[in-house]
């Protein structure tokens, strides 16, 4: 970055002559140093996971959650500056609430991603603010059921509605990632933070197409745990805690809600992850020996 120090990196809302906004690029640097976050979308739902770096031995285990619930069916995880992430989550909750107030129906994952993308983009425009130092992963399950109007008297008649178009799918699992620039895309699998390269390489090996042979939700939980462990560099990085959440459809284990993965399943997934990793290390050692 040869243009650094030329004054074009001092404020938002000023482009450098070669068309870059340095403040946004610096914000992305803040993200690149944060603990790894990933999201996996499979046929039955979405899994979010984060590598929570332990900054002090005095911090209580399992406390200080990093994955937030935004609405019943929506979860957010982020890498980068935690206070910025908390503000992002607060705003996301406001947006979800506003949508419910206006339309008496839950906000869809796509609509939330769109609104939050717009919100983050606005922080790249003005002198008085700085961009968010986070990349956020938004996961959600939009109900395929007919939701009752909030505040409706009773649930309404089950009979009467005619002329539905058959064979069309509505709702389902969705995953979005929003960057400090405000850029967002929908993903099958998303990764951000320090270990994103390794995590992305692992995600690409999974079958996340959502068809018959695709990953199940429970497999996705186990893969998520493994990928967070793979992305963690034992030699360089500090110790970490694994935090995971999941969202299934109404007929799945979370009944359409965003929830923390149960302790038993998380520990099982972590045990398997460690076992697989140790196995790989052993193999490598054996290879080394054969080469000798």
């Amino acid at each position: 970055m040869t243009s650094i120090g030329t004054g074009y990196d001092l404020a938002n809302s000023i482009f450098s002559p070669d068309g870059r906004n340095f403040q946004v690029e610096y914000a992305m640097k803040a993200v690149e140093n944060g603990g790894t976050s990933i999201g996996i979308r499979c046929k039955e739902g979405v899994v979010l996971a984060v590598e929570k770096v332990i900054t002090s031995k005095l911090l209580k285990h399992g406390a200080n959650k990093r994955i937030a619930t935004v609405d019943r069916h929506l979860g957010v995880v982020y890498s980068g500056m935690v206070p910025d992430g908390r503000h992002f989550v607060e705003r996301a909750r406001d947006e979800a609430r506003d949508w419910r107030d206006a339309f008496k129906t839950p906000i869809s994952t796509a609509d939330l991603a769109k609104r939050m993308g717009g919100y983050m983009q606005a922080y790249t425009l003005y002198q008085s603010v700085r961009p968010f130092g986070i990349t956020a992963i938004v996961g959600g399950y939009d109900s395929e059921l007919e939701s009752p109007v909030d505040g409706e008297v009773g649930s309404g008649p089950s009979c009467g509605a005619g002329g539905k178009v058959a064979g069309k799918k509505h709702g389902g699992p969705f995953l979005y990632m929003i960057e400090p620039s405000g850029l967002y895309w929908g993903y099958y699998g998303a990764a951000t933070g320090k270990g994103r390269q390794a995590a992305k390489a692992e995600l690409e090996k999974l079958d996340l197409s959502g068809d018959e042979n695709g990953l199940t939700l429970e497999q996705a939980v186990k893969e998520a745990a493994r990928i967070i462990h793979v992305a963690h560099d034992d030699n360089k990085d500090k110790e970490f805690e694994l935090e995971m959440s999941w969202i299934s459809g109404h007929d799945g284990p979370t009944k359409g809600l965003h929830q923390e993965v149960p302790k038993a399943l998380r520990e099982e997934a972590e045990r398997l992850a460690k076992k697989i990793l140790e196995g790989e290390e052993d193999e490598e050692e054996e290879k080394d020996k054969m080469e000798e």
């Binding site: 109007v149 309404g156 009467g160 539905k164 069309k168």
Partner: peptide, 21 residues
Amino acid sequence: ERHGGQVYSIPLGGSLHKQSY
């Protein structure tokens, strides 16, 4: 497309009722 034909009634006080007719 998703819900087919639907009828909602909103009488004087502003309550909302989903009905077959």
